[in-house]
Computed example of a mutant assay.
Amino acid sequence: MWDAERLRIATDAAGIALWSWNVDTDEIALDERAHKLWGVRRDGPVTFEELSRRIHPADLERVRKTFQSTRTMAGPYEIDFRVLHNDAVRFISARGQGDDIGIVGRIMFGVFLDVTERKQAEEAREMLAGEMSHRVKNLFSIASALTSIAARSAATTTEMARDLTQRLTALGRAHDLARPAPGQTAEKAALLGDLLAALLAPYSDDAAASGRVRVSVPEVRVGGTSATTLALVVHELATNSIKYGALSVASGTLDVRCTAQDGEMVVVWTEQGGPPVTAPMDTIGYGSKLVTRSMSGQLGGAITFDWPASGMVATLRMSKARLAV
């Protein structure tokens, strides 16, 4: 039943690539699937050094040491690593038997599996877990800051409790925009001004005559998918402002304005009256990565920061077409 032809059918069905390694000459023979996976020539054996040139530099030394130790490694082994092929990064899992089990005429045998989709799914889960942890920590900071804001103008504990409840309720609505409940989706379309007003409502101060938070944007529709992404970005900016920037003090103000430029929508977030500002160190925190990834990946744009003495200024550039999705 299990002749060479039937085994080949089975390996093709499972997406398994085959390799053999001559432990004396260091030559590696690959089947057709393995050649495609690595993107190497098909006119004969290749060497481990040749394959090494395609391994991601960050993984190369680990793969070298692990692969060389497989001859004395007891039992089956599995090595996962990245390869660079056609300007793309793929994840490969190399598997075989250690301790020279199954070696024939100085030749060892094993398989390669393309595990890119699995690795990408794992990275996505790690990113989601990291984002959740990051946002939970931010929520604790925000709750403390909103309590201080509510206490500024309240004459009694009853007024303070009512003010704080209203702000936390607004924060909950903003959170729903950023992360709809399971089974629910963001609204199909909303006005950009209404969206920004809802997101920034928890931080405004109605008692101030001039308005602590000012929003001035044209009548632009934002699609449900973009609304969720933009909510994440605005929430991150507001969180940083209430922790370190203009919204952290009673005298601070926030001005958000939007203009249309060719195929882009440009939102300028200007903070004034807060603590002295300085540009952050080169180290990029998780929140900055989240904002940058969201702006480029989902909104087809970018975000830049300026640090004048008067306060931080963030400029968000978004594709009009993406914003409507």
Rank of each mutant, 00 (worst) to 15 (best):
T225W: 03
G193S: 02
L192N: 07
A201K: 12
A186Q: 06
V234I: 12
P180W: 01
S226R: 00
R214D: 01
A178K: 07
A231I: 01
E219W: 08
A231R: 04
V222H: 00
A181G: 00
G193H: 05
K188A: 15
A227D: 02
S204P: 02
A198H: 10
R221A: 09
S226Q: 01
A186M: 09
D194H: 10
R173D: 10
L177D: 02
D205I: 12
D206W: 15
V234M: 01
A189T: 11
V213R: 03
R173I: 07
P180Y: 07
V233A: 08
D194Y: 07
R221K: 14
L237F: 12
G172M: 04
P180T: 07
V217D: 02
G224W: 02
T229F: 03
Y203I: 14
L191Q: 15
R214P: 02
R214S: 04
V213H: 01
T185H: 13
D206M: 13
A208Q: 05
A208F: 06
G224H: 11
A181D: 01
A209R: 08
V234Y: 12
A207E: 12
A201D: 06
A190S: 15
V233I: 07
H235D: 15
R179N: 11
A227P: 00
P182Y: 01
Q184N: 11
E236M: 12
A201G: 03
T225S: 02
G211E: 00
A181V: 01
A209P: 08
T228M: 14
D176I: 06
R212H: 02
L191D: 13
A189P: 12
L195N: 08
L192M: 04
T228N: 13
A190M: 12
S204E: 12
R212Q: 10
A201N: 11
T225G: 06
P202V: 13
G193D: 03
L232W: 07
K188R: 15
A190H: 09
A174Q: 10
T185M: 15
L177I: 14
S216G: 07
V234S: 10
E219K: 02
D205Q: 07
A178F: 13
V220R: 07
G224Q: 03
P218K: 10
L232K: 08
A181L: 06
A181T: 00
S226D: 01
A178P: 00
A197V: 09
D206A: 13
P202W: 15
A201E: 11
T185D: 11
P202N: 07
A227Y: 03
L237S: 15
A186R: 09
G172L: 05
G224R: 07
